[in-house]
């Protein structure tokens, strides 16, 4: 079956964001993000204004998907860690709880790959716990708010969306 729809509530979002903020501070990285394997942004922390996070998430998901396509070709189940090194900035990515990707962008002059990897590994458990909790809520109840959220969306509501485009 394809992955179930994913719903993120305030509680889990807060935990993920707090972990990412701590990771930025502890590993001295510029920007941290959690996205899902389909390229949707779950949460970000650190310096996000100079980065087009939506595009970054889409490309990172494509990057990981392509790498894991290569993994399958050589008989590996998947690659779990990815690293791109630039002249100044680098991107470190690792898989998280099966369906998510942790992204860390850092300046080589400020911190090191070893430090980023160490701190990212430490953050992984707490991040995975929050995301797994969110996934279970999504899969079990679909809607933890307790009442239909969008049942009364009408065709006119949808038409209005295009009127605004």
């Amino acid at each position: 079956m394809p992955l179930a729809d994913f719903v993120l509530y305030e509680e889990e979002y807060g935990k993920v964001e707090a972990e990412l903020t701590a990771l930025c501070r502890d590993a001295r990285i510029t920007t941290a993000a959690v996205i899902d394997k389909n390229g949707q942004i779950i949460a970000t922390a650190g310096e996000t204004r100079r980065i087009d996070a939506t595009s970054l998430a889409s490309l990172a998901a494509g990057d990981v998907a392509a790498a894991n396509g290569m993994a399958a070709l050589i008989g590996e189940t998947e690659f779990s860690v990815f690293f791109h090194e630039g002249q100044r900035d680098c991107i470190y990515m690792s898989l998280l709880a099966g369906r998510f990707i942790l992204i860390a962008i850092f300046d080589k002059k400020v911190t090191s790959l070893g430090m980023v990897r160490l701190k990212a590994n430490k953050a992984t458990e707490a991040l995975a716990s929050a995301l797994t909790s969110a996934s279970s809520k999504s899969e079990s109840g679909k809607n933890a708010v307790g009442e239909p959220l969008f049942a009364d969306i009408t065709s006119e509501d949808i038409d209005r969306l295009f009127g605004q485009t």
């Binding site: 729809d5 994913f6 719903v7 305030e10 979002y13 389909n38 949707q40």
Partner: peptide
């Protein structure tokens, strides 16, 4: 797989 984020009040879908 749509993604609904209650924190940012967003519905995200992929076509």
């Amino acid at each position: 797989m749509s993604f609904i984020n209650f924190s940012s009040r967003e519905i995200n879908c992929k076509i």
